[in-house]
Amino acid sequence: MLRSYLLAGLFFPLFLSAQPEVLRVGVADAPPYCIDDGEGNWYGMAVQLWQLVAEREQLRYEVVDFSHPDSLLPHLTAGDLDVVLFSTLDPGAERRVDFLQAYHHSSLGVALPKTNGLWTTLRGLFTLQFLYIVVGLSVLLLIVGVVVYLLERNRNDDQFGGERSTWQGIGSGFWWAGVTMTTIGYGDKAPRSLAGRAVAMLWMLVALAVTSSLTAAIIAATQATQPLKFPEGLRSRAVGVVDESPAENYLASEGLDFQVFDSPRAGLEAMQEKQLDAFVSDVTTLRYVIDEYDGISAAIEATDAEPEAYAFAVRQGSPLREPLDEAVIQITLTKLWREIKNTYDATRKVPRSAPRRR
Rank of each mutant, 00 (worst) to 15 (best):
Met271Asn: 08
Arg287Ile: 02
Asp243Ile: 07
Gly295Val: 10
Asp291Gln: 13
Thr225Ile: 14
Gln226His: 07
Ser281Met: 05
Ala220Tyr: 10
Asp257Lys: 15
Thr182His: 10
Gly295Ile: 07
Ile184Pro: 00
Ser212Trp: 14
Ala299Leu: 15
Ser263Asn: 05
Glu301Cys: 10
Ser281Asp: 10
Leu194Phe: 08
Asn249Ser: 15
Ser236Thr: 13
Gly169Gln: 14
Val283Ser: 12
Ala198Asp: 07
Arg192Cys: 09
Val179Gln: 09
Ala190Ser: 15
Ser263Trp: 02
Ser165Ile: 09
Ala217Leu: 04
Gln223Lys: 03
Ser236Ala: 11
Gln275His: 06
Pro264Lys: 08
Met181Ala: 15
Glu244Tyr: 00
Ile290Lys: 12
Thr182Gly: 13
Tyr288Phe: 12
Ala217His: 00
Asp294Ser: 13
Ala190Asn: 14
Gln275Thr: 04
Glu232Tyr: 01
Arg237Trp: 13
Thr303Tyr: 03
Ala177Ser: 11
Val242Lys: 04
Phe258Pro: 00
Ser263Ala: 13
Ser193Lys: 04
Ile184His: 06
Leu286Val: 06
Leu276Met: 02
Ile300Ser: 06
Val280Ile: 10
Arg237Ile: 03
Gly171Tyr: 11
Ala217Gln: 03
Gly169Val: 10
Gly267Arg: 06
Tyr186Leu: 10
Gln259Cys: 13
Ala247His: 00
Thr183Ser: 14
Ala221Ile: 09
Leu208Ser: 05
Ser165Phe: 07
Gly233Ser: 11
Ile184Phe: 12
Glu254Leu: 11
Ala220Asn: 03
Met204Thr: 07
Ser297Cys: 06
Leu208Cys: 05
Asp291Leu: 09
Tyr250Cys: 01
Thr225Pro: 01
Pro231Ser: 14
Ala298Asn: 08
Met181Ser: 06
Trp203Val: 02
Ala177Phe: 11
Gln223Arg: 04
Lys274Gly: 03
Gln275Pro: 01
Gly267Asn: 05
Thr285Val: 12
Ala207Ile: 09
Gln159Leu: 15
Ile184Cys: 07
Gly178Cys: 12
Pro246Val: 13
Thr215Asp: 00
Met271Pro: 09
Val260Pro: 00
Glu248Met: 02
Ala216His: 01
Ala207Trp: 05
Ser253Asn: 06
Thr285Ala: 15
Ile290Ser: 11
Trp167Lys: 11
Asp291Arg: 11
Asp294Thr: 08
Ala302Trp: 06
Gln275Leu: 13
Val289Phe: 02
Arg265Asn: 01
Lys189Pro: 00
Lys274Met: 06
Trp175Thr: 09
Leu202Ala: 11
Ser263Met: 08
Arg164Ala: 12
Asp291Asn: 14
Arg237Cys: 01
Tyr250Val: 12
